[in-house]
Write a protein that binds this DNA or RNA. Structure first.
Length: 474
DNA sequence: CGGCTTTGACCTGCGC
DNA sequence: GCGCAGGTCAAAGCCG
């Protein structure tokens, strides 16, 4: 730490394992389920078409409501049928009380029949909904499993070719001083030796090497994930998009090539939250605000921010996992296929961010192209200095499957378009999405950090101070 | 008075 | 080694 430790902005980060911004995919399942139980942005009116599940739910709710209304109406009819005091302007003829009674009786019977019908329909809809949810969860579980398989396969094979026991996964220099990396190099030395040439030795070497390789890969990816950024381009007149989190400005700089200053913010929702964001207006179009999130929240996110977390987790995770497969095969990798399967409208257009030191997911919500397919860009780049770009058509209402990756393959583009239109119409969507993705990306880091913490406890030789972390972060 | 913003100084990484 | 640019710090000032 070069500068006096006087600052209490939260450099001595305490990682909270109970954070809601935890786990990448597995727990996001439960999150997803939870999200489906709530409105993404409480208080905001949502179109049922915004989300097939929500739509179905809304439909079901409306049915339930209808049923309730029907009950109320029936009651009202029963109560007011004979009084004539109610506003029954549609009933012009004057009928006798007996006829009225007869009328209400038959009306009641009809309504009861209708009620029964609606109940039955409601029950069917509920079944359908449950079935849809179950199917969705099953599919998502399967997807995750496949991703893990592909990922292991991919990296395992690559590592088999390139890495020996003392080797390291090709990781940029800035990641190598991460605690997670240093732990892997010492691992080989810690291993009790087996007699070379023995079957036990060969078997153990083979399996342990694969373990090491897998751990190396995993840790390298976690390190990358920890540094991953989420950048969101969106049109906004306000100086900063409201994303539900509290931010404190700690700096402002004039960036080269842009007359607009870049502002630096820290999350102040919890003491020690390491999340930062940069906000800058686009030089070409001042109405476009670029917000870049970095780090992972160590506290529960507000509903607005966490809402989209689960639905975007798969996409981001896949993008990132795919991105770590270096070389041109990256695009053709199983993860790439998977990503395209999950993001069916994705194009193969790729961009390389040579300047980005860390993988960056860019969400472009400024494009106005109506009906244009969303762009999922993953570069066949010499990673990890990669930039992933997901372009969502703006409020104009283009189609996108980004928000509902696991469902998209079975949806028509119209459905997806409607959903996207409804979601992106929400002004807080941009920020919430970014915060959510940011938390997801950081989620891996929390796990990694937790693991590192444990490792550092067990390893007496390693000095794993906050300062070190901070320097590494620099 | 506490929290936030502003702003100049400082640090670090990178390219030449 | 030097200069540049990005990022951060922290003192000073502002505001409710």
């Amino acid at each position: 730490m070069s500068k006096g430790g006087g600052t209490n902005y939260g450099e001595g980060v305490t990682l909270n394992s109970a954070s809601s911004s935890s786990p990448l995919l597995p727990s996001s399942l439960s999150q997803y389920t939870a999200v489906k139980e709530m409105d993404f942005f409480s208080g905001e009116r949502r179109s049922p078409a915004a989300d097939p599940d929500l739509g179905l739910k809304a439909l079901t709710s409306s049915r339930i409501k209808e049923e309730e209304d029907l009950t109320v109406d029936t009651g009202l009819n029963l109560l007011t049928g004979n009084t004539g005091t109610s506003d029954r302007s549609t009933v012009d003829d004057v009928s006798s009380p007996a006829e009225d009674f007869k009328g209400s009786k038959s009306e009641m019977a009809a309504m009861e029949a209708e009620l029964a019908r609606v109940k039955e329909e409601n029950r069917k809809l509920k079944e359908t909904l449950n079935h849809a949810i179950t199917s969705h969860n099953t599919l998502q579980m399967h997807l995750i499993w496949l991703m893990q398989q592909h990922h292991q396969l991919n990296h395992g094979e690559a590592a088999d070719r390139k890495i020996d026991c003392g080797g390291a996964v090709p990781v940029p220099r800035q990641y190598l001083d991460e605690p997670s990396q240093s732990s892997t190099t010492s691992r080989c030395g810690d291993r009790p030796p087996s007699p070379p040439g023995s079957m036990d030795f060969r078997l153990r070497q083979s399996s342990t090497d694969k373990e090491i390789i897998h751990e190396n890969t995993e840790q390298a990816q976690e390190a990358i994930m920890r540094k991953a950024r989420v950048s969101v381009r969106a049109r906004s007149e306000s100086p900063m998009i409201a994303d539900g989190c509290q931010w404190r400005k700690y700096g402002q700089k004039m960036a080269k090539g842009n007359p607009c200053p870049r502002a630096y913010y820290r999350c102040t929702m919890a003491a020690g939250c390491p999340v930062r964001k940069q906000v800058q207006r686009c030089a070409e179009d001042r109405s476009i605000l670029t917000t870049t999130y970095e780090g992972s929240h160590n506290h529960p996110l507000p509903p607005a921010a966490v809402a989209m977390a689960s639905t975007t987790s798969a996409a981001v995770s896949m993008l990132l996992s795919g991105s770590t497969a270096s070389g041109p095969e990256g695009l053709m990798s199983p993860a790439g296929f998977m990503a395209r399967a999950v993001l069916p409208y994705s194009s193969s257009m790729a961009t390389i961010s040579a300047s980005a030191p860390f993988p960056t997911v860019m969400l472009d919500l400024t494009q106005e192209s109506r009906g244009a397919a969303p762009q999922f860009q993953r570069p066949p780049a010499p990673l990890p200095a990669a930039q992933l770009q997901v372009s969502l058509p703006g409020r104009g209402g283009g189609g996108s499957s980004f928000a509902m990756p696991a469902q998209a393959p079975s949806l028509s583009s119209d459905t997806v378009s409607a959903a996207t239109a409804a979601i992106t119409a929400d002004p807080s969507f941009t920020a919430a999405l970014a915060a959510a993705i940011s938390s997801i990306i950081g989620a891996g880091s929390l796990q990694a950090a937790a693991r590192n913490n444990e490792e550092s406890k067990s390893s007496a030789n390693r000095s794993n101070s906050d300062d070190g972390d901070r320097n590494a972060a620099h």
